[in-house]
């Protein structure tokens, strides 16, 4: 297992480096044009670009960049969030993103699993059909649509705040109330996803031979479901939960935009549109690393959830 983990880790570093290189080359391939407004000196603006080293050969810039990040220097915003340290700014924004996503997960996982289990147990009955219809709606409709609906109904017509509260008292009651609307908006899709997946897995397990054996052994339906069916169904579901947790720090561009969440969701997109190389590269590296780490974590988790699964075993 250790050998496997080390191997995966090394492969992860290699993949990270490759993706980083590709990202760097691609972003540098975009034309860097001087936008000359009335009264601006085009020569001066071009001079700024040259002095920043942006006209040097791409690979030369890349080597320099690698040297910088190995010294822990992720740069200062030049076009986006001008004058701000990339790492500091990212870390300042991360809690807002995390707080709404954690709340969303705390709601989504139990509700999603509960609905999925209930639907599986009531398979093909009206309860199952109601849940499945709801699931299909929430999976099909983009999150920003019900985000607007939530904002209109619960915030504008109801009493919830329209926007996330100002300040950094992330764990206060006022903050909790102010993030209820974005949390609900984020949760609908995730609940639907969990419910659908759980129902599908559990339905399959419930019809397995070993479940029949368990019942014939004298277990009640509830005992058989909890002790045997659920445990087996959780093998593919648990990694999905881990994957969703990883998504917590990714942020949600639309939800953050609608509810005034000062998170990291918009940073990445803005870094591309404004060609802020330091922000773009840092965020690319960060999300790539998180994604790769999540992959390893999910793979390793199979072994813990179901001891029969052994990665890399011969």
């Amino acid at each position: 297992m250790i050998k496997y983990t080390i191997k995966r880790f090394c492969l992860m570093l290699f993949t990270l480096f490759s993706i980083m290189t590709i990202c760097f080359v691609l972003i540098k391939s975009l034309p860097l044009v001087v936008d000359v407004g009335l009264g601006k000196d085009a020569e001066f603006l071009e001079g700024i670009i040259e002095a920043r080293g942006y006209r040097k050969p791409v690979m030369e810039q890349y080597v320099t960049y690698l040297g910088r990040i190995f010294q822990g220097d992720f740069g200062v915003g030049i076009n986006m969030e001008k004058g701000t340290y990339v790492l500091d700014n990212f870390l300042q924004r991360l809690p807002a993103t995390m707080i709404i996503n954690i709340y969303a997960m705390l709601i989504s996982v139990p509700v999603g699993l509960g609905l999925g289990i209930f639907a599986a147990l009531k398979k093909n009955k009206w309860q199952d059909q109601v849940i499945s219809t709801g699931v299909m709606i929430f999976i099909s409709v983009p999150s920003y649509v019900y985000a607007f609906l939530v904002q209109y109904l619960l915030c504008f017509k109801g009493g919830l705040p329209l926007q996330m509260k100002n300040g950094t008292d992330w764990l206060s009651w006022d903050m909790f109330v102010s993030v209820l609307a974005p949390v609900l908006s984020l949760s609908f899709g995730t609940i639907a996803g969990f419910a659908r997946y759980t129902r599908a897995e559990l339905t399959e397990v419930l019809t397995s031979d070993f479940m029949l054996l368990a019942r014939t052994k004298g277990l009640t339906r509830g005992q058989a479901t909890i002790r045997h069916a659920l445990r087996n169904a959780m093998v593919p579901i648990f990694p999905m939960i881990i994957g969703e947790f990883v998504g917590i720090i990714g942020g949600s561009l639309i939800i953050e935009q609608i509810f005034g969440v000062p998170g990291v969701g918009r940073l990445y997109l803005n870094s591309i549109t404004t060609l802020d190389y330091d922000y773009f590269m840092f965020l690319s590296m960060f999300y790539t690393a998180i994604g790769l780490a999540a992959g390893i974590l999910v793979d390793l988790s199979y072994g813990f959830i179901d001891p029969r699964i052994r990665m890399g075993a011969k």
């Binding site: 700024i48 002095a51 920043r52 080293g53 040097k56 030369e60 810039q61 320099t64 960049y65 040297g67 910088r68 220097d73 740069g75 200062v76 030049i78 004058g83 701000t84 340290y85 330091d278």
Partner: peptide, 17 residues
Amino acid sequence: KVAPADGSELWTSTYGT
């Protein structure tokens, strides 16, 4: 004042942030 990053000749500033 922030000294130039490697590869750049330009100083930057965090004034007004």
